[in-house]
Amino acid sequence: MSPLPTELETELARLVAAVPRPREAAVDVMYALQRHYGYLCDEAMHCAARVLGMTTLELESLATFYDYLYRRPVGRYVIHVCDSVVCWMFHQDSIFDYLCRTLGVPPGGTSEDGLFTVLPAACIGNCHNAPTMLINGRFYDRLTPERIDAVLAELRAGTEEPVRCK
């Protein structure tokens, strides 16, 4: 296990100290480690367990329960495509299908360049702009194939600094 960078260690210690009991920081610590490692690998889970004084199983209980903690490798941009009823009404499945085909991945898969992971998501709270998706904390509204192409191109070009999901 390689040691964590000092800044990250400091950040983790701050997260744990900021809450009444270390357990409360479990999700925050896992988010921080997820940002560092890209996803929650076993090593990250062991780090989190050490920092929080919890067992890896307890953290696994949480990490696998939640939606936005990834226990499998993901791309740099995780695309959460809302598939709830309002988006469905606006042909979300076609959008999703289009995304998967464009990137050449199955649902939950990561594109070959390691940039994109496509995931269906529960309602992301943007129903008035359906169909919609969420990429690293940013909403993309009223999707059309053209808009998706534009978004992907924009992200690929790296013009946008990734706003990682915290």
Partner: peptide, 19 residues
């Protein structure tokens, strides 16, 4: 003891250890 418990959610809940 805390090395065995539930994981995942919904109808995928799994009872086991981390490894």
């Amino acid at each position: 003891y805390r090395d065995f418990g539930p994981m995942q959610n919904a109808n995928r809940v799994y009872f086991g250890r981390f490894d």
